[in-house]
Amino acid sequence: MGVAIRTAGEGDRELVVRLLDQAFQDDPVSGWVFPGAEYRRSTHHRLMAAFTGIVLDDGRIDVTEDGSACALWLSVPAEAHDADDDGPAQLRAAVDLGNERVELIGRLTARIHPVGRAHEYLWMIGVAPERQGEGLGSALVQHVLDRCDREDLPAYLEASSARSRVLYERFGFELAGRPLELPDGPLMWPMWREPRG
């Protein structure tokens, strides 16, 4: 059974934010950024909205035709980027000014992001909780990896749970250095995939 996939547009913004918010409510990293279930329920969606806006402006969001899953991708050029720019501080100001972890997660992941080689960056992938385990996320990932293989482009991501790390390994991603240890929090695994000929 094939999964129909299309590129999301501005009219899909609320759908994508809702999918990401629902999919990441129980994620270890989201739990670290927004500790406490009630706080997370009331605030987490603002971070997902900011991420969605960034990728709608500068990247690509793929969504299943039935609106049950989405993947946020950025094309990263080979030129080095500045890991100490004002983006994380601006994100914190827009999302939750009193929460320093919103800014910290951006700075920490920027520091471990590989530079020097163009690649596709899987920022996030979200599947509606009631549809998880049906292969929708896998279809979204494979959709872009097929293009990466055709265009000889590597891909990169940070896995936010041990479960997702195992999933990405099945697609050929390998650990790219040591895991990122969030202060008093969970691990994130930087993962790199070379294109397959």
Results as ranks from 00 to 15, higher is better:
residue 76 V to R: 14
residue 96 D to P: 03
residue 54 I to Y: 06
residue 121 Y to W: 15
residue 127 V to H: 10
residue 150 R to P: 06
residue 163 R to W: 06
residue 159 A to W: 04
residue 55 V to I: 14
residue 138 S to G: 15
residue 110 A to Y: 06
residue 121 Y to M: 07
residue 29 V to W: 02
residue 45 H to A: 14
residue 32 W to V: 01
residue 125 I to A: 11
residue 42 S to D: 15
residue 94 A to F: 01
residue 53 G to M: 01
residue 122 L to V: 03
residue 146 D to G: 13
residue 104 L to P: 00
residue 67 G to S: 07
residue 108 L to A: 05
residue 136 L to H: 14
residue 166 V to D: 11
residue 30 S to E: 03
residue 163 R to Y: 08
residue 46 R to F: 02
residue 99 N to G: 01
residue 113 H to D: 06
residue 171 F to M: 10
residue 138 S to H: 09
residue 142 Q to W: 07
residue 79 E to P: 00
residue 64 T to R: 00
residue 124 M to Y: 14
residue 51 F to K: 08
residue 121 Y to R: 11
residue 129 P to G: 04
residue 111 R to S: 09
residue 45 H to N: 04
residue 116 G to S: 15
residue 60 R to H: 00
residue 152 D to G: 13
residue 151 E to L: 15
residue 84 D to K: 06
residue 40 R to A: 12
residue 85 D to N: 14
residue 129 P to Y: 05
residue 137 G to I: 06
residue 155 A to D: 06
residue 147 R to V: 14
residue 80 A to P: 06
residue 171 F to Q: 11
residue 81 H to S: 13
residue 61 I to H: 01
residue 141 V to F: 12
residue 159 A to D: 06
residue 93 A to V: 03
residue 146 D to I: 09
residue 124 M to K: 07
residue 72 L to T: 11
residue 143 H to Q: 13
residue 145 L to V: 12
residue 136 L to R: 15
residue 149 D to R: 09
residue 92 R to P: 02
residue 105 I to A: 11
residue 133 G to C: 13
residue 55 V to R: 07
residue 138 S to R: 15
residue 81 H to F: 13
residue 133 G to L: 13
residue 117 R to F: 13
residue 143 H to C: 13
residue 114 P to F: 05
residue 97 L to A: 15
residue 87 G to W: 11
residue 77 P to I: 07
residue 57 D to S: 10
residue 60 R to K: 03
residue 75 S to H: 14
residue 46 R to P: 03
residue 94 A to P: 04
residue 168 Y to M: 12
residue 88 P to K: 02
residue 139 A to M: 05
residue 148 C to L: 08
residue 160 S to K: 04
residue 69 A to F: 02
residue 166 V to S: 13
residue 59 G to Y: 01
residue 130 E to G: 13
residue 53 G to D: 13
residue 39 Y to V: 11
residue 144 V to D: 08
residue 126 G to M: 00
residue 115 V to C: 12
residue 71 A to I: 12
